[in-house]
Design a protein around this nucleic acid. Structure first.
Lengths: 149, 149
DNA sequence: TATTGTTATACTCTATAACTATA
DNA sequence: TATAGTTATAGAGTATAACAATA
């Protein structure tokens, strides 16, 4: 096997490319992949606390503070009162937050098209199936866009 | 498209997994993927200067200093006299360096097998072909194992 | 006593800029 | 003057530990 042609190497190379391209596509929206992940989790679970979103994203809760600071300053998220726990914030998306989340989703779809462009429809389906099988076998629970781990 | 099932997302996830697994497999050898890449380039071009290897790895030459310091301290590389330029070091692998490089290659092969385990031979070939096509279309010249970029 | 959010601090990795000795 | 190697410094990014308010 040519060392620079290995599946593991090419996967790492293409994965880094995907991460970098996604970050570049989000840049005009004023957010990073981490912000995008936070928006997604808050959208899927409105009213979550910072601790809960941090658990879902698998980051420390102190990192969540700055992340929510950014999103709140950008008007994408609001820290509301938690109905049952006065220590916690209940996080909600604003209308802008929902719009930016949708635009981020569109950017991700565009990136999929861009990356799959050299493959024909049959190859695309096979590649996608293989990815799912390999990710499942590796025990990768899709929690957050991998900045690094 | 389910957001967490996207090709771009799964590729990034699996790519990060590959990078982390490779780093873990190299750990017993006492080197990182960066050290491994340096060993490889020196092996492919014996007598190279630090600047030349830095260019191949697409890192700054000052970062190369610490990398070669590590490899030299581990007895894997020696800084020899450059035949034509007294400013430069001519880098050579030691016998240990060649052995560690071979062991790193074996680790990478093992990682390939591990990652491809859930696929049948036909799927493996198709996945490999797709990876090459996508990497080529993305303009990814395989230079170094992507720590980050 | 445990937990949420926060802040302060430290650590890792890398980028920028200088310095030296040669070319 | 330009370049190879080196060193020093600073900047991200994240981890660790402590703190106040509340449970």
């Amino acid at each position: 096997m040519e060392p620079l042609e290995r599946v593991s190497y090419l996967t790492a190379l293409l994965g880094a490319h995907s991460r970098n391209r996604f970050a570049a596509l989000l840049c005009p929206l004023g957010i990073t992949p981490q912000h995008f992940a936070a928006l997604r989790w808050i959208s899927l679970n409105d009213g979550s606390t910072q601790q809960e979103v941090a658990d879902l994203m698998e980051v420390r809760r102190n990192l969540m503070v700055g992340l929510v600071d950014d999103l709140e300053a950008a008007g994408l998220v609001i820290r509301g009162r938690h109905p049952a726990d006065r220590r916690a914030h209940a996080l909600h998306l604003t209308a802008s937050g929902r719009r930016v989340l949708a635009e981020g989703d569109a950017a991700a779809d565009a990136l999929d098209d861009e990356m799959l462009a050299p493959l024909d429809p049959c190859q695309r389906a096979a590649f996608h199936d293989a990815l799912r099988a390999m990710a499942a076998a590796a025990g990768l629970s899709p929690g957050v866009f991998p900045e690094n781990r």
